[in-house]
Nucleic acid binder design. Structure first.
Lengths: 216, 216
DNA sequence: CGACTTGCTGACCAGAAGGTCAGTAACTAT
DNA sequence: ATAGTTACTGACCTTCTGGTCAGCAAGTCG
């Protein structure tokens, strides 16, 4: 007996706290989350939390960064290295990625960024540079490759690759707000959208000349 | 001189307070807005505010309802009474509506609903019934009419009219989070999306038989 | 087994914010 | 004028929460 009241585990603490904070923020949002709750969830005293993170805001930023960083890098690299045609890539890896986003923990990022972004300009700037810019860039390259390879006609998608992930955002927002009362089949929703876009820009096999752009 | 310190204007107070609150919530979000600030903005004492709204939360709900109600009714009625073809309606009144949303005060609703919705289930339920359900319903009818009239092929848009407004939500979220640092031409963004969707579902003039559904 | 370092605790503090209410003054009726 | 009604004020109260810090105890070294 006489089990020690705590263990010293300097290495693991930051991640433990960060995880707990993500869960708490996801449930209640940033402002409504109490630092004490985060500490309790992490099985740690409030004092310790403040040893690793100077303020609640720093903790918030650390949480966001911890969730996002891995994903986008992977997507970007995959797009640049793939052997698949543009359409194959969109229907394969990209669709997988898009479908899984509204389910993943990253989903709550959307809530947090929309709700708290405006109050944390430097975080927003970081988010832009490390997530949005890279992501859009990768998608744009993919579309462009499709156009140059004669798969797609030129379209506004080259300028607005955002459109590709629009339904993902909507899915995430939807489930945050209306679930579980009103469900949305996000998988089919996202796939349906991709289908429609592809139908609009695809050049049928064999027809390789440029067709006119969409009318005004 | 001896101008009275205040006027008694029982009739106007609720709206004045509601307006002030919308502005405040839009700037800072719900949690970060102080009731005192709202009162100050409305040119009123905090006590008076609590005479018209029992709690901060009630005030919040009143704000949401005051912004939303008129719009959706108008859209819905317009769709049901229009003489335009489905495509004409989408490119005309609907596009106008969609373009103007991300600019209007209603834009901040998106932030507020995503951020605070989960903490106000009854408000969310009201919002669903009075805004989302009606809106989706109207759009679905419009699409269906287009299909039945031989303008559009059958497509997932009938099941997911949400796709039509997805770029509107994205535009709003975008400008809330990234403006003014990174601008998005929301007008062209939204129109581009509509163009693509129409291109996907439109049946060219003269070709009135049903064409096959989008392949899997 | 002590002595030392340091990860960790939790009682405490200062300030803030939602909400109250006794009192004030703008209006009204007589 | 004067008395009565009530919209309105703002000081005050209570609770809450981000943040601190003096001290404790787990690990370590000789």
């Amino acid at each position: 007996m006489a089990r020690p009241r705590f263990r010293r585990r300097k290495e693991d603490r930051p991640e433990e706290i960060t995880r707990a904070a993500l869960a708490a923020f996801a449930e209640k949002g940033y402002a409504a989350t109490r630092v004490t709750d985060v500490a309790k969830r992490a099985g740690v005293s409030k004092g310790l939390l403040y040893l690793y993170f100077r303020t609640k805001e720093e903790l918030f930023k650390a949480v966001i960064k911890s969730v996002v960083s891995p994903r986008i890098d992977a997507l970007q690299k995959a797009i640049e290295e793939t052997e698949l045609s543009a359409e194959e890539y969109l229907r394969g890896p990209f669709l997988d990625f898009a479908r899984q986003l509204p389910r993943s923990p990253a989903r709550v990022l959307i809530r947090l960024m929309i709700a708290e972004g405006p109050r944390h300009p430097d975080l927003t700037a970081w988010y832009w540079e490390n997530v949005v810019a890279h992501g859009l860039d990768a998608l744009r390259k993919l579309i462009r490759r499709g156009v140059e390879g004669g798969e797609f006609r030129p379209s506004a998608l080259e300028e607005f690759p955002h459109l590709l992930i629009a339904p993902v955002l909507v899915s995430a927002a939807w489930s945050i707000v209306f679930e579980p009362h009103h469900k949305l089949d996000t998988d089919r929703f996202i796939e349906a959208h991709l289908d429609l876009l592809l139908q609009a820009i695809r050049i049928p096999h064999g027809e390789n000349r440029q067709t006119g752009e969409p009318g005004t």
